[in-house]
């Protein structure tokens, strides 16, 4: 990957993805070899909305590369609450760090941030937009379980606002993958994501009922349907119930089906699924470490090359 930033999954080619995933595999095989790779470098964790696992995962990945991390603390107590623009905030933070990881509630925030700084920016979620580092670890999980070609993937839940869905769908177009999108009518993929899928000639179908396709799937990627997306709570409960899976739902599935979820889950995957061989969502979360190490390593390497620095390996 020769990119300076990771902003959307649409920017990633098959080669980009495979290079990061190969490196992630190497990191997982021999983490000690990467331990001091970026010693003395600092990663800024700029989280403008709450996050536990993504922030901790980047924090841990950076430290395992020998980097230090700095965070902004609670947004309510930072200068953001005093009305400072994101453009100004990242320009200031750029002086404190060698790379930025950004989560922000507005779509396009990471694009704007990248335009204002010269250090690498990783989009760790921009509103209902994109979450491409999650996609890399999703793809790593799929690759380790099935490979990335000749693949049939079902993506279910909140496809309209689900940023992990938007990134995953875009990235899968690089591979020989059939994509099935399963959601209530009101939470179908947004026009912009469908546009990109059609532009790339992706093989895709949309469904309202998981039963229509479950037998065909190699991977079922489940996402949470959030209560706040529905004006009426009864309607939420009715819809959410239809997109909940349990061990019985999976009786019609292939033996090799992999069930994934970006987590946190609420009740869309029943605990009895955890006991089946299908469940891979905890493995998927753990893959965040080698994949984000590989990603940070790649971006730091690119930045150092761009600076023309001699890097001692």
């Amino acid at each position: 990957m020769r990119q300076d930033h990771l902003i959307t999954a649409t920017q990633l080619s098959r080669d980009d993805i495979e290079a990061v995933l190969d490196r992630a595999r190497a990191v997982a095989d021999d983490p000690a070899a990467y331990a001091d790779r970026h010693a003395g470098r600092v990663l800024a964790l700029c989280f403008f909305e709450p996050s536990t696992r993504t922030r901790m995962s980047f924090d841990s990945a950076a430290k395992r590369l020998g980097m230090n991390t700095v965070g902004m603390g609670d947004v309510d107590s930072s200068s953001v609450s005093k009305g400072e623009s994101l453009s100004d905030t990242v320009r200031v933070i750029e002086g404190y760090a060698d790379a930025l990881v950004l989560r922000h509630p507005s779509e396009g925030a990471a694009t704007l941030a990248a335009e204002n700084v010269s250090v690498p920016v990783v989009n760790a979620g921009d509103g209902a937009g994109q979450h491409p580092s999650q996609t890399l670890l999703d793809l790593h999980t799929i690759r380790e379980n099935h490979g990335l070609d000749d693949l049939t993937v079902g993506i279910m839940g909140d496809l309209k606002y689900g940023r992990t869905v938007h990134s995953l769908a875009a990235a899968l177009t690089n591979f020989d993958a059939n994509q099935h999108f399963i959601s209530p009518e009101s939470l179908r993929l947004p026009r912009s994501v469908r546009f990109d899928l059609h532009e790339t000639g992706a093989q895709m179908r949309e469904h309202t009922d998981l039963e229509d396709v479950i037998g065909e799937l190699d991977v079922l990627y489940v996402t949470r349907i959030q209560k706040e997306r529905f004006p009426d709570e009864n309607e939420y409960h009715r819809v959410a119930g239809e997109y909940r899976i349990d061990a019985e739902t999976l009786e019609d599935a292939s033996e090799d089906l992999t069930v994934m979820h970006p987590l946190p889950r609420v009740d869309e995957i029943a605990p009895d699924v955890d006991e089946t061989d299908h469940a891979r969502y905890f493995e998927q979360a753990h893959n965040g470490i080698p994949v984000r190490m590989a990603l940070l390593d790649t971006l730091m390497e690119n930045a150092e090359a761009a600076e023309g620095m001699e890097v001692d390996r």
């Binding site: 623009s85 994101l86 922000h104 507005s106 396009g108 694009t111 704007l112 335009e115 509103g127």
Partner: peptide, 10 residues
């Protein structure tokens, strides 16, 4: 919810 509608100098 686009960042361009968020009072940014852009």
């Amino acid at each position: 919810n686009c960042i361009t509608n968020a009072d940014e100098p852009v």
